[in-house]
């Protein structure tokens, strides 16, 4: 029957939840279950509620990602300029579906809606690099450059 003296108001604390999740994911690459439990405690929420928030947003991952993250844009502009072809190629090349990681743990593939580089469509972002006007043919070269980078 613990009486917790609240320093910061509960609502204020809760409003930092998404920022906290970003922070953990930035550090760990994903949201480990122990961290979710710890954040829940800190926020005065149930772990399930934190999980509910974490799984609502596209950005958060519950499993460790590959070394490099590939985000292929399927926004309108990219779609019209053939992003599905690009995606098909990546899927074939890496043998994974969106949301999955390659067996060697090198790449994780995501499909996102609009990277904000629409005029360079089709666009994709690998790690923090934006690649614009990617033709399926260039793809191998680009991927290899990351493979070499390790």
């Amino acid at each position: 029957m613990g009486v917790q003296t609240e320093v910061v108001s509960a609502t204020e604390k809760r409003s930092t939840l998404i920022a906290r999740l970003h922070e953990v994911q930035e550090r760990e690459g994903y949201l480990p279950a122990v961290e979710i439990a710890a954040i829940a405690k800190e926020m005065g929420m149930s772990a399930a509620q934190v999980m509910g928030v974490a799984t609502f947003y596209n950005h958060f991952r519950l499993r460790p990602p590959g070394k490099h993250s590939i985000k292929v844009c399927d926004g309108t502009a990219c779609h019209v300029k053939g992003s599905n072809k690009l995606l098909d190629r990546i899927e074939a090349e890496l043998n994974i579906q969106p949301g999955e990681s390659t067996e060697d743990g090198m790449f994780t593939l995501h499909v996102v809606a609009c990277l904000g580089a629409c005029s360079m469509a089709p666009a994709m972002v690998i790690d923090d690099d934006v690649h614009g006007r990617v033709s399926p043919r260039q793809l191998k070269r680009i991927l290899n450059s990351y493979r070499r980078r390790q």
């Binding site: 926004g75 990219c78 609009c114 629409c118």
Partner: peptide, 8 residues
Amino acid sequence: DEGDPGAF
């Protein structure tokens, strides 16, 4: 939040 795909 500019979520409209294709807008920047």
